[in-house]
Write a protein that binds this DNA or RNA. Structure first.
Length: 217
DNA sequence: GGCCAGGACACCA
DNA sequence: TGGTGTCATGGC
């Protein structure tokens, strides 16, 4: 376990409290939200989710049965509706091959689950990790933009893309709940303190973490 | 009226 | 492997 990393998590949790990510009533809703929120804000994703719930009750069979044009119309508020509609159809067809049984899917693919997710159209590195963390209950690190900006501010150089931070972080020793909270805390922190260079005003202003250095030791 | 928000992908060198 | 253009909406 990386003590610096866990100490950071504890400090953020003490300051900000539990974030309760991911906000949803079902695993299916999390899958949909994860795709719909790509490169937009949660408010827009929520509009599409509201439409989808009204139309399908988040039933896998009903979602897959929706004509592509109809699905596009329903999710229009969250943007990129052509790409996202294709992704939703592809992912839910995949889920239906396992009767939308998420435990069965995780047990079937095991260590290959993340790669299997990446093979689905519309699921990239970040969304794959989000699904691992909140849908398949695997304690992984989501190395998203806010995470990279946070660790850059904390003193880790060279975080130019998703993999650059992802490969420096492993959450060994974190429970599932802690890993889920960690991602929520990082993103909520980002919304408050990483816009307009307000990091120096935050409670982490004097915290230093160089994960690269840690890796070399 | 431009900028940004809880990215992914095709294409290129 | 890594960089760039494109996809689109809603709120400020």
């Amino acid at each position: 376990m990386n003590q610096q990393l866990y100490a950071l998590y504890q400090k953020m949790f003490q300051e900000m409290g539990p974030q309760g990510w991911w906000p949803a009533d079902s695993k299916e809703e999390i899958v949909l939200g994860a795709i719909l929120v790509q490169n937009t804000n949660w408010q827009n994703a929520a509009l599409s989710l509201k439409n989808l719930k009204k139309e399908t009750e988040f039933s896998s069979a009903k979602i897959v049965a929706l004509p592509l044009e109809k699905l596009q119309e329903i999710i229009r508020p969250s943007g990129f509706f052509k790409n996202k509609s294709r992704g939703i159809h592809e992912v839910f067809n995949w889920l239906l091959r396992f009767d939308t049984d998420f435990i069965k899917i995780r047990d079937y693919y095991g260590e290959d689950l993340r790669n299997e997710l990446l093979n689905l159209h519309g699921i990239g590195e970040e969304t794959a990790d989000v699904l691992m963390l909140y849908v398949f209950d695997v304690p992984v690190f989501v190395s998203d933009t806010y995470a990279r900006r946070l660790f850059t501010n904390l003193g880790t150089p060279g975080l130019s893309n998703y993999q650059s931070l992802k490969r420096l972080v492993n959450l060994t020793g974190f429970t599932l709940t802690e890993a889920q909270e960690f991602h929520g805390l990082i993103d909520e922190f980002g919304k408050v303190f990483l816009k307009g260079n307000k990091f120096s005003d935050s409670f982490l202003a004097h915290t230093k973490i160089n994960l690269q250095k840690e890796e070399e030791i």
